[in-house]
């Protein structure tokens, strides 16, 4: 197996082929090779959630995922979660509720919340708290993030 074989997967709905050595993690591939910088690097060790993306619809820490292992799969980043124009309901709720402050954790929260609402369209407050408890936010105290997700759940119905 060559160490730089072509990796092919679906990225935000479109097929991509990109050379990728074995030790490359998905976060580096996205940010550095594919220049999709919406996915953030907060710790590189799985302890902040800023780098969350969806792999086959499942929220995933891109900093701890070998890029080669997404071969043949579907990856959705914050860029893919966002509609071409405007905002999706989760994003609109985050803006309306002031759930962003510095915004660095926000793409990870939006991705995580999007996945939550796809699998559980009417989560309870406790379920929301639990779902986001792998994403760190240092600005908001989470209060407005939780309100925004509750609101997005109502809007999406």
């Amino acid at each position: 197996m060559s160490s730089r074989e072509l990796l092919s997967f679906r990225l935000n709905g479109h097929p991509v082929e990109v050379p990728c050595p074995s030790p490359r993690v998905l976060l580096d591939l996205l940010r550095e090779d594919l220049r999709l910088t919406g996915t953030k690097r907060g710790c590189d060790l799985g302890t902040c959630g800023c780098c969350a993306v969806l792999v086959d619809g499942r929220p995933t820490l891109s900093c701890l995922t070998l890029a080669r292992l997404v071969d043949g799969r579907s990856v959705e980043t914050i860029e893919g979660v966002s509609p071409p124009r405007g905002l999706n309901p989760v994003q609109a709720a985050f803006v309306a509720h002031g759930a962003t402050q510095c915004g660095f954790c926000t793409p990870g929260f939006v991705v995580t919340a999007t996945a939550l609402l796809r699998s559980n369209p009417r989560p309870s407050r406790a379920e929301i708290e639990r779902a986001i408890s792998g994403n760190l936010c240092r600005c908001t105290g989470y209060i407005k993030i939780i309100e925004a997700i509750e609101d997005a759940a109502r809007t999406e119905e």
Partner: peptide, 9 residues
Amino acid sequence: VATPLVRSS
């Protein structure tokens, strides 16, 4: 175990 994002993988 850890966090939801960790349990996801």
